[in-house]
């Protein structure tokens, strides 16, 4: 059985805080970070990575290609 763990990376600088990714994540993994990025935007952040099911909807919806996703597979 292969155990999967997803790694979601959000580029704070590309993100403009539009929150589309937060709105489409079926597992509510994402939320807003409190700090501002270098361009003065609040930006999205990964809050509950363990709930991520790797559906890529956040990456798909992001207008700024700010989200990249890996999967770590641990085989037995």
């Amino acid at each position: 059985m292969v155990q999967k763990r997803y790694i979601v990376k959000i580029s704070g600088d590309c993100c403009k805080g539009c929150q589309l990714c937060i709105s489409v994540c079926p597992k509510k993994v994402l939320g807003m970070a409190r700090n501002l990025n270098s361009r003065g935007h609040h930006h999205a952040d990964v809050l509950r990575i363990n709930d991520c099911i790797g559906c890529l909807q956040c990456a798909d919806i992001c207008p700024d290609a700010a989200i990249e996703i890996d999967v770590e597979e641990v085989g037995r």
């Binding site: 790797g54 890529l56 990456a59 290609a65 700010a66 890996d70 999967v71 770590e72 597979e73 085989g75």
Partner: peptide, 11 residues
């Protein structure tokens, strides 16, 4: 036995 595969990259 651990592999990391990218599922989505900035084009």
């Amino acid at each position: 036995s651990r592999t990391i595969r990218s599922l989505y990259r900035r084009p």
